[in-house]
């Protein structure tokens, strides 16, 4: 934590945004740590969930930025264990969702999260184009984006042999509808390129 004075913002803090847009009160968190205690990936995170909650609570600019640049938000697997056990019934995964989205929009995503983001993008691209997930296309796309060319190549023959990897995408009829949905959401501000 920085020892400099908190630069608390009166308006437009992340905490306020999360309350307004997601109806989740981060202020309710009393830092019991039960989320961090039960989080299956806490030990791999740079800040455990309870610390992320605290950072957002400070409404301090430096803290907010650290949260948005954290690896934690990308490692969260949305398993909902924290929310299920949170004594204050705070939707912590919802907070993580929000931070991820903001982090991505602001171009602040942790560089180490590139693989994860590449996968999400490849996944969404696949359904944007076809309406359904095209697994082979997804994997090829992901490899191109992440340069993980060698990863899982040994799996492919097994999948093919077991009839698990289709060679052709399934195209749905409402593709225009899908493109529309993407244009109005994810691609609204130029976003995904």
């Amino acid at each position: 934590m920085s020892s400099v004075q908190h630069q608390v913002q009166k308006k437009g803090s992340l905490m306020e945004e999360i309350l307004d847009s997601r109806e989740i009160s981060v202020q309710k968190c009393y830092q019991c740590g039960k989320c961090s205690a039960g989080c299956p990936v806490a030990e791999d995170m740079d800040y455990p969930p309870s610390v992320i909650m605290r950072m957002v609570q400070t409404e301090d600019k430096a803290m907010e930025e650290a949260a948005l640049r954290s690896m934690t938000i990308w490692l969260c697997v949305t398993c909902e264990t924290c929310a299920a056990r949170c004594p204050m019934e705070i939707d912590i995964p919802g907070v993580m969702d929000y931070l991820r989205q903001r982090s991505y929009e602001k171009g602040m995503a942790n560089p180490k999260a590139n693989h994860i983001i590449s996968f999400h993008k490849a996944f969404l691209d696949s359904i944007d184009y076809t309406g359904r997930l095209y697994e082979l296309g997804l994997i090829v796309d992901y490899k191109m984006r992440s340069f993980q060319l060698q990863q899982d190549v040994d799996l492919a023959p097994g999948m093919i042999a077991r009839g698990k990897l289709g060679f052709f995408p399934e195209l749905i009829k409402g593709r225009k509808n899908m493109t529309d949905i993407f244009r109005k959401t994810l691609h609204k501000k130029g976003g995904l390129k």
């Binding site: 019991c32 740590g33 989320c35 961090s36 205690a37 056990r85």
Partner: peptide, 20 residues
């Protein structure tokens, strides 16, 4: 810190908590 979960293993109780 608050304990998240407790389970049994080899006659011991595994207590998972966090040090806030």
């Amino acid at each position: 810190g608050r304990v998240s979960t407790i389970y049994e293993r080899d006659g011991k109780l595994i207590v998972k908590g966090a040090d806030t």
